[in-house]
């Protein structure tokens, strides 16, 4: 961990739609190993990434069970990022846009994320050494 370095990442893609989700989570993983504070601002569909009700599923086409399928969920990946932060001593501040959450009914989350607004993103950017904004396309 690099003492004093703060990184802010804004993400907007919903889960299970594009490769960008995995790339963004890999960036956050790498950041937690380098930075002291990593702020994630989840906007628009990205707020669904932390929904607690996500469940892995079997694959009836292939005939595989839930266990065999090992279907990943973004909520588990993000829970893993919070666990990593505890290990490295970094702070992961995951902010879900509140209005985006309300629109999608995505308020029931795993432990860790908090509700916020674009103002929180703006404040985090002011304190950051680096900013990565990953827009939808």
């Amino acid at each position: 961990m690099t003492i004093g370095k703060n990184l802010t990442v804004a993400i907007m893609d919903p889960p299970y739609e594009s490769a960008t989700t995995a790339t963004a989570l890999r960036i956050i993983d790498a950041a937690l190993r380098q930075a002291q504070v990593v702020t994630v601002f989840a906007y628009e569909g990205a707020v669904s990434m932390t929904m607690k009700a996500q469940q892995p599923h079997a694959n009836p086409v292939k005939g595989t069970t839930v266990e065999q399928e090992e279907h990943p969920t973004t909520k588990d990946w993000i829970a893993g990022l919070f666990a990593l932060a505890r290990q490295t001593g970094a702070k992961l501040d995951w902010i879900n846009c509140g209005l985006c959450v309300d629109e999608r009914g995505a308020g029931e989350t795993i432990d860790g994320p908090r509700r916020g607004s674009p103002k929180d993103f703006f404040e985090a950017v002011k304190l950051s050494d680096g900013v990565i904004v990953i827009p939808t396309h």
Binding site: L7, T23, I27, Q34, D129, G130, I132
Partner: peptide, 19 residues
């Protein structure tokens, strides 16, 4: 290179990231 290099670059002073 690993994605950690992207993070290092983003944390480099006077650097802007454009996605």
């Amino acid at each position: 290179s690993g994605i950690d290099r992207l993070v290092s670059l983003a944390l480099t002073p006077q650097t802007r990231v454009i996605w």
